[in-house]
């Protein structure tokens, strides 16, 4: 896990970056602390035509259908420096209120793609729901799929291609999580204390204690 500003690794429960001190408050200072109301597909930069919007919305809807917990949001706009895009995505996913989302879908389940056609950069961030399952390389792979299209200015094609790859990644992660949920749970557990570590090692060498079942009779 990296800091959105200095891109240094940070602790999984850090309230601010230990390297640069960045937190949401800093982003609020730059972009505002008020809630931002927008739609899942917000084309502020005006880079999508009508037919293209439909294609992109169809790809977004497809992910929402196959992964009922998850939604995808896309924002296009001019943001200035490339280095700010990561911070902007972090801030927008925390401060936005998506009008066209059902209330049972919190922003934790969101995947936000931000595209800045002026500085020609794009970023992808995701909420806490997908925190154990996705990592930075997954999002990088998705954006890489769109790179060739965006180079030619074919933004809609790039977005659709990125979402198609994202769908494949989510399918794999979901299957893996169903087979081995502990693998992902360990990623988000609080750091183990030394005593816990020793206890786990010792428990590994013993047979697990068998707990009585409710329907079993217990001898007096």
């Amino acid at each position: 896990m990296k800091c959105p500003r200095c891109v240094q690794r940070i602790h999984r429960a850090a309230s601010s970056c230990p390297h640069c001190g960045f937190s949401l408050g800093d982003a609020d200072g730059r972009y505002g602390s008020e809630e931002v109301r927008l739609r899942c597909l917000t084309d502020s930069a005006g880079i999508l035509r009508r037919g293209e919007r439909e294609r992109v919305e169809s790809a977004m809807e497809r992910i929402s259908q196959r992964f009922p917990q998850v939604f995808v949001a896309i924002y296009t706009g001019s943001l200035g420096e490339v280095s700010n895009l990561r911070q902007f995505g972090f801030w927008l996913l925390n401060r936005s209120a998506f009008e066209d989302l059902p209330p049972d879908k919190p922003n934790e389940a969101g995947i936000l793609i931000s595209i800045d056609p002026e500085s020609k950069a794009a970023g992808m961030v995701f909420g806490y729901l997908l925190d154990p399952f996705l990592d930075e390389s997954d999002t990088f792979d998705c954006l890489s799929r769109a790179h060739a299209y965006w180079l030619e200015g074919r933004y809609a094609d790039g977005i659709v291609r990125a979402l198609a790859h994202l769908e494949n990644v989510l399918v794999k992660k979901s299957r893996h999580a169903r087979r081995d949920p502990e693998h992902f749970q360990r990623k988000v557990l609080p750091p183990a204390m030394m005593g816990d570590l020793v206890r786990r090692i010792r428990d590994g060498h013993r047979a697990p204690a068998r707990l009585p079942q409710p329907d079993e009779e217990v001898a007096p």
Binding site: A13, A14, S15, A121, V125, Y128, L129, D131, V188
Partner: peptide, 21 residues
């Protein structure tokens, strides 16, 4: 899973990649 919040974000911690085209 219960994920601890980071960097003051209630919904996301800003993890993700940025690419330049």
């Amino acid at each position: 899973f219960d994920v601890e919040q980071r960097l003051g974000g209630e919904h996301a911690a800003g993890i993700g990649a940025v690419i330049s085209f």
